[in-house]
């Protein structure tokens, strides 16, 4: 659906069009992916159910836990509180697209392994996506800053101290890599 979409120029007569189906193109991890979906489908559900990218996790589904964190146009957001339709035309990066190529690990992924920054692992993709953004935003300068700017990602296993250590390891490596 784009600016010339029939929906936009002539919206359905009834406010609630029970049959409306959106034909969307999402830019996910550098590829154009077609998603045909009901308007209710969130970005998280489109990624997991329509595109088979199950790395992004559904924890609370209400924007409280951070497990669904992805990057949209380079910014960390919650895919469970984003309609897939509203993400059209934007560049979406998920945990699957973080490493430069298959088989490699992003420095943040390696750091999470090195520091045992998880137990069950369910929150980990969201933690890592958030942690990468925390560094690129410049909010990983002190331990206190890391804790504050990572507070939107809950870990029921309470791996928090190790997550802070992992971010501190990855930060200089990310900067070296991007320099």
């Amino acid at each position: 659906m784009d600016a010339s979409s029939p929906l936009k120029s002539s919206p359905p007569e009834n406010l609630r069009d029970r049959c409306q189906t959106l034909d969307l193109v999402l830019q996910v991890n550098g590829r154009s992916r077609r998603v045909v979906a009901d308007p209710r489908v969130t970005l998280l559900d489109a990624l997991r159910e329509n595109l088979g990218l199950t790395g992004s996790k559904k924890g609370c589904d209400h924007g409280q836990c951070g497990a669904c964190t992805v990057h949209v146009d380079g910014r960390r957001v919650l895919s469970c509180l984003t309609f897939a339709a509203a993400a059209e035309g934007k560049h979406i990066t998920t945990i699957e697209g973080l490493a430069p190529q298959e088989g490699d690990l992003h420095p943040m992924q390696q750091a999470f392994m090195d520091h045992d920054a998880f137990q069950c692992g369910y929150c980990t993709p969201g933690q890592i996506m958030s942690a990468v953004a925390c560094v690129t935003e410049g909010h990983a300068e002190t331990d206190a800053d890391i804790r504050e700017y990572m507070s939107g990602n809950l870990c029921r296993c309470a791996a928090y101290p190790n997550i802070v250590d992992a971010i501190k390891q990855a930060k200089p490596l990310m900067r070296e890599r991007d320099a």
Partner: peptide, 8 residues
């Protein structure tokens, strides 16, 4: 269910 519309 709802319908979705974009405005510019």
């Amino acid at each position: 269910p709802f319908s979705y519309q974009r405005v510019d």
